[in-house]
Design a protein around this nucleic acid. Sequence first.
DNA 1: GTGATCGATTAAACCGGTTTAAAAGCTCAA
DNA 2: TTGAGCTTTTAAACCGGTTTAATCGATCAC
Lengths: 342, 342
Amino acid sequence: MAKDRPTIADVAARAGVSKGSVSFALNGRPGLAQATVDRILAAADELGWRPSNRARSLSVSKAFALGLVLTRDPAVLTSDPFFSAFIAGVESVLSRGGQALVLQVVTDGEDEVAGYRRLARDGRVDGVFLSDLRHDDPRIDLLSELGLPAVTLNRPVGASPFPAVCLDDRPGTVEVVEHLLQLGHRRIAHVAGPPTFVHATARADAFVATLADAGLEPAGLEISDFTAAGGIEATRKLLALEQRPTAIVYANDRMAIAGLGAAQQAGLTVPDDLSIAGFDDSELAEFVHPGLTTVRADPYAFGEAAATTLNQLIDGSGDVADVELPPARLVVRRSTARLEES
Amino acid sequence: MAKDRPTIADVAARAGVSKGSVSFALNGRPGLAQATVDRILAAADELGWRPSNRARSLSVSKAFALGLVLTRDPAVLTSDPFFSAFIAGVESVLSRGGQALVLQVVTDGEDEVAGYRRLARDGRVDGVFLSDLRHDDPRIDLLSELGLPAVTLNRPVGASPFPAVCLDDRPGTVEVVEHLLQLGHRRIAHVAGPPTFVHATARADAFVATLADAGLEPAGLEISDFTAAGGIEATRKLLALEQRPTAIVYANDRMAIAGLGAAQQAGLTVPDDLSIAGFDDSELAEFVHPGLTTVRADPYAFGEAAATTLNQLIDGSGDVADVELPPARLVVRRSTARLEES
DNA sequence: GTGATCGATTAAACCGGTTTAAAAGCTCAA
DNA sequence: TTGAGCTTTTAAACCGGTTTAATCGATCAC
């Protein structure tokens, strides 16, 4: 009943030409008479012909798909608000072009390497996105070795053979700190992400540098892990300091929201006793109490740009330039306030 | 340099047999002498041969991939904690078997239909997961029409030609309500998800039924939308009631956490003035202040079971039975407390 | 010794496209 | 009239597997 879809041979028969001519016509190759091309296109249209990308895959050795490997600890049901929007952005590019996105969620570093190897070995994808860049990221060498094209989300620290699509974290961080300084804060602490991650150190460095520009030192610098649990712990440590900070800047919203809870549990009122700022502008940020001052990027646009760039690299006409996206910007809500003289 | 990978012809040459024999040996087909099979397998092993699933795809008309289409509003950078763990579970099954997961994140109903059509038309996947079931879900007919095998996550309300993998929401909801009743609450309200969703009504129905069993009526029933913003609004309405509820049960954590913020903003202390419970046990649930009483499922196992079942359906030997997973269970934290007589 | 039977193996077709090399048709010059 | 030089078209090989039908060789009955 589900009548077989027409193949290129059916189109050829209907147009009264050979398979080869049909292929030429469909791919816009020169060398065919215009009249013939028109006839073939009409025939294809009438039959409702669609290319089989299985067949195309085999003959042109392409997968017509891009890959994303996310390394996440499933015990912590972590789910970045970043990625659903990012993926939607990627999708918007792939759906034109008839490409697909292959996703892998793996739980540790070993699986991660295995995941990329598998994508390459099975020829599942024509290229991959490299997210959550780490210092001396082993994936860069791995992908070079595998010969798998890639685009890095933000710029790795060392040399990289891959184009980078960048959304700079630092201006947002600078804005947060300057915002707090303007509110009169002088004892400002930072809860950073794991220093293995480039974006964690970038934010921490921007934090320290901005304070330094104002002639200040961090009132505390806790290295944490981007999780809510880590945020709680780091916050407790900071609040236990002799000179308690009057403001804490977190490297992501998850830690900030957890830290907000920790501060409240410790009997502090936010923002009266303590100002708090996050990073990401996750959905909840707006709706916790008090609303979280944070930094907002545009992950959807990030996804679009990354997909476009990766496709350019794969279609491979020459070098592909890095792309610079508008940086994340400060969003002020109620969790930060003018320092009360006490 | 990147020497071409060995093909089945190379293996055949090395083992001194024909291509066909190699194919038989590798697929464990009977009819070959054991000695020959051993020789072929050894040759394949020595050459490091791996099947090309592009070629296999073409000749057996299978994609060796499963699909998941998520409909999410990217403006609300919603990201279910459910799905990253679910996907990791799916992945754990697919990685054995050499399959891949194709993910689409779409932003509205039209794109959703187009997404499934595209997956089917392009032969991208051999089957799909049907999540976030709706009443009279149009996707069931759509997929039947497309002839795309599917597994539903939980059971649709009407007839369905597809096997269902079920993780019952209701026992958890019943437990929440009973927990609150035991704490002495009598005015308990519910913030439900959109009634189009089966799981939203399932939770709401279980809520109402459990109260009814105790001879009570809901102290309020707000229909919301699973978002934080919706949770805020619903909470405000409930708190404005003449007879304010002493406890609110939310259909998910996101609304509950937002509701928590709203209650605090309204000057209430949770749980002293108001008990609050969520659903999902998202990461933040444990770390907001006070820690959120909620209901926890095992989305990783859900993913495993769904993938296994879908594969059984695709490999298609006979009917596939529905799968019943252990239901979600109550997790008690600090956001619910004994009702203080006032 | 001949033919039937059966197990092991192979050649070739096939999946649905792309691509190459050759052929066919046409124009034009010598 | 021949053929050189184009443009247009086609046949066939190819991508790397699977599958079918045929073949080969050995065993067995008669």
